[in-house]
Design a protein around this nucleic acid. Structure first.
Length: 413
DNA sequence: TGTCCACTGGAAGGGAGGGCTT
DNA sequence: AAGCCCTCCCTTCCAGTGGACA
C-alpha cells in the first residue's frame, strides 16, 4: 500500500488531551480570579431575565485581561437561563477592529438577526445608513426579547468613526416597540470616552467595570487549570508554567499570551518527539510568537505603507536611528522614483507613519528640536533579520513593476 | 522674549469603486 | 441609465506647537 505522508503523525504519541482548551476562544466552565467582575456584570444583566432593560456597561482592561471571555461567558449563561424560564435574551458581539464603521456595524447586527425564511441581506454598501438602522429596529422587534449588543474594541471604532453609532445604539430603546436593547462596550483604552459626546458618554457608561491585569500567580492558576484538562499527565517539566506566566505577566498580564506560550511550547516538544515540555521550549515558543505576530502584519500591509517602512529600514540599515519624518519622506520619494511611481504627499506619509506606529511596527515619538522644528523620532521594531529589500520587492510586485534586481545592490539608496 | 523651524494633525473635499433605487 | 449613498484613499489648506536660538 502507498505510504501516506500523515502516517508517521498518526502513530506519534501526543502530549495533548484536548488542544482546543488552550485556545483563547475556548469558553471555560469557570473563570478564575474574575469573580467580582462576573458578579457585577451578571447582577446588572439579570434585569434582562426579568424582561427589563439592563444598564449599558463599559468594560475596561488591558489585552488578555479576560474582558471578552467574561462577557461571552455571562451572555452564554444568560441565554441558557432565559431559555429555561421562557425569556428571550439574545447577545450579539461585534468586533469593532474588523467592523469599524457605523454602516458596517449596523448592517452586521442586522444580518445577524436575519431569520432563515428571510432572504434579504443588508448589502455591505449601498443603502443609506438610516435605512439600515430602521431595518435593524424592524428585525429586532420582529424577534422580540432583550438584546445584549456587545461592541468589542469599541475604542477603535470611536477613534475611527466618531460616536454617531453609539448615539444611535444607546437610544435604540426609543425606537423599539416590543424588543429591548442594552449595549456593552469593551475597551482597552480607559480614556476613549474623552472622544464621546457627553450625552453618549453618560448613556454608555451607566456602569463601568474595570478588569485589572492578571499577576503572575493568577496566570499560573489559569494555566494550571487549563493544562489539567488540555494536556496529558506529567508532560510539563519543572518551571514551565511559572515561566509562561512570568513572560505573560511582563506583557501586562496577558492571559492569551500565557495560553499561547503553553500551547506552542507543548507543540514544539511534541514535534521533536520529546515527552516533557521544558523551559527551552517555552523560550522557543516565545520567539515564534513574536515572529508570527510580525509576519502577517508585514505581508498584509498596504503597498504604500510597505514603501514607507522599507524607506525607514533602509535608513536604519545605513546606521541612522531616530529618523525624522522629513528624512523618511526623502528616502520614500527616491524609492518611488526608482520604481517609477508618483509619491504621495508628505501629509499622507505622516499619517501612514502614525498607522505603522499604531500597528507596533515602528515607534514614532513626537519631539521638538527647538529652532530645528518639530517632528517625529522614528525607529523600527522590526527584527534585524528582516530585509528591507524584501519588503520593497513585495511592494513592487503589488504595483506590478519589477525592479527588484536594482535593489539587490542598492543598500546605499 | 519673540522668532522661527519642521513638522503635526484636524478639516474639508475630490474621486474611484461598489451597490441600491427608480 | 441616472441619481443616490457609502467607503476608502488621497490631497490641499492651515492653525497650532515645543523648544532652541538670537
Amino acid at each position: 500500500m502507498e505510504e501516506n505522508i500523515f502516517d508517521r503523525f498518526m502513530s506519534q504519541k501526543t502530549l495533548f488531551k484536548n488542544k482546543e482548551i488552550l485556545r483563547h476562544d475556548h469558553r471555560p466552565s469557570h473563570l478564575p480570579h474574575r469573580n467580582d467582575e462576573v458578579e457585577r456584570m451578571s447582577y446588572n444583566l439579570w434585569e434582562a431575565l426579568k424582561g427589563h432593560i439592563p444598564s449599558n456597561m463599559t468594560v475596561y482592561g488591558v489585552t488578555g485581561a479576560g474582558k471578552t471571555a467574561v462577557t461571552n461567558y455571562i451572555c452564554h449563561h444568560l441565554k441558557v437561563k432565559g431559555e429555561t424560564i421562557g425569556r428571550k435574551v439574545d447577545s450579539i458581539m461585534v468586533n469593532c477592529r474588523q467592523i469599524d464603521t457605523q454602516y458596517r456595524v449596523l448592517s452586521h447586527l442586522g444580518n445577524m438577526l436575519l431569520e432563515p425564511h428571510e432572504s434579504e441581506e443588508i448589502p455591505f454598501t449601498g443603502w443609506p445608513t438610516d435605512r439600515v438602522f430602521k431595518e435593524l429596529v424592524r428585525r429586532m422587534d420582529a424577534r422580540g426579547g432583550v438584546f445584549i449588543i456587545v461592541l468589542d474594541e469599541i475604542d477603535h471604532l470611536v477613534r475611527k468613526a466618531g460616536d454617531d453609532l453609539l448615539y444611535n445604539l444607546t437610544s435604540l430603546n426609543g425606537s423599539l416597540n416590543t424588543a429591548r436593547a442594552c449595549v456593552i462596550g469593551i475597551s482597552n483604552d480607559l480614556k476613549f470616552t474623552d472622544f464621546l459626546d457627553p450625552r453618549v458618554r453618560s448613556r454608555l457608561g451607566q456602569l463601568d467595570i474595570l478588569f485589572r491585569p492578571y499577576d503572575a500567580e493568577q496566570l499560573q492558576d489559569i494555566l494550571r487549570q487549563r493544562a489539567e484538562r488540555a494536556l496529558q499527565e506529567n508532560v510539563l517539566g519543572p518551571g514551565v508554567i511559572e515561566l509562561c506566566a512570568a513572560l505573560a505577566a511582563q506583557e501586562h498580564g496577558d492571559a492569551r499570551c500565557a495560553l499561547d506560550l503553553l500551547r506552542i511550547s507543548t507543540e514544539k516538544a511534541e514535534f521533536t518527539g520529546e515527552n516533557v515540555v521544558n523551559q527551552s521550549h517555552v523560550r522557543a515558543a516565545q520567539s515564534q510568537i513574536e515572529a508570527d505576530q510580525m509576519n502577517p502584519v508585514l505581508a498584509t500591509l498596504p503597498t504604500q505603507q510597505k514603501l514607507v517602512l522599507a524607506a525607514l529600514l533602509l535608513n536604519e540599515r545605513n546606521g541612522l536611528r531616530n529618523v525624522a519624518t522629513g528624512q523618511v519622506y526623502d528616502i520614500y520619494r527616491q524609492a518611488c522614483q526608482h520604481i517609477r511611481q508618483s509619491p504621495l504627499t508628505q501629509r499622507r506619509i505622516s499619517g501612514l507613519i502614525s498607522n505603522l506606529d499604531m500597528l507596533g511596527l515602528i515607534t514614532a515619538r513626537t519631539v521638538s528640536k527647538g529652532r530645528y522644528g518639530r517632528s517625529k523620532e522614528i525607529n523600527s521594531c522590526i527584527p534585524a533579520n528582516v530585509n528591507p529589500v524584501e519588503i520593497m520587492v513585495a511592494a513592487e510586485e503589488e504595483l506590478g513593476v519589477v525592479f527588484a534586481s536594482n535593489y539587490q545592490h542598492q543598500s546605499s539608496l
